Amino acid sequence: MFDNPFSMVVAIVAIVSIASIVRARYGLRRERHRWHEHDNGRSDNYRIDSAQTEAMRAEIKALKDRVAVLERLATDSNSALEREFEKLRQQD
């Protein structure tokens, strides 16, 4: 059946076309390697996802800031925390 390259190309194009028609028929779209259903005019789901996404981004940013502070405290040899420890050691 696929004895020449032309028939293989035609078969591949046909498969892709049929898949596109099926996706359009069932309201599916591909977004970042995941399949999602279209909400068909209902944008509440989008708003919730967007709000959740923004909340997660804010939380990740806050966590990155906290990690940066902890890294600075752990690696900075002249930090105020180390000076406080030295003062406490000298008092003993």
Rank of each mutant, 00 (worst) to 15 (best):
Y26M: 01
D39R: 13
F6G: 02
A51L: 00
M8Y: 13
I15W: 06
F2A: 02
Y26A: 01
G41M: 02
D65R: 05
R29H: 02
G27M: 01
R32L: 08
N4D: 14
S43Q: 06
I15N: 08
R89Y: 05
R34M: 07
L70K: 07
N45H: 10
G27W: 03
V9Y: 08
M1T: 10
A14R: 07
R30E: 00
L70A: 02
R42A: 08
Q90P: 02
A19V: 00
L70T: 05
V67F: 11
S50A: 06
A68N: 08
R89V: 12
A62R: 08
V10P: 02
V22M: 00
E54N: 07
I12V: 04
K87I: 15
Q52T: 13
A19K: 01
E37Q: 13
D44S: 12
M8P: 04
E84V: 15
M8Q: 14
R30T: 03
E84T: 15
R89W: 05
R32T: 04
R66V: 00
L70C: 03
V13F: 13
E54A: 04
I60H: 11
V9F: 09
A58V: 12
A68P: 14
A62K: 10
K64A: 13
E31Y: 13
E54Y: 14
E71I: 14
I12S: 04
R30G: 02
D76Q: 15
L81M: 10
E82C: 04
E37I: 05
A58K: 14
R30S: 00
G41L: 05
S77I: 09
M56I: 11
E31F: 13
L81Q: 10
I12E: 07
D92E: 14
Q91G: 06
S7V: 03
V67W: 14
S7T: 07
V69M: 04
E82F: 06
A11C: 06
D3T: 02
N4A: 13
S50C: 09
A24K: 12
R25E: 07
M1I: 04
Y46Q: 00
I15H: 09
E84Y: 09
L73W: 13
N4W: 12
A11P: 11
V69E: 09
N4P: 01
G27I: 01
K61D: 13
S7G: 01
A80D: 08
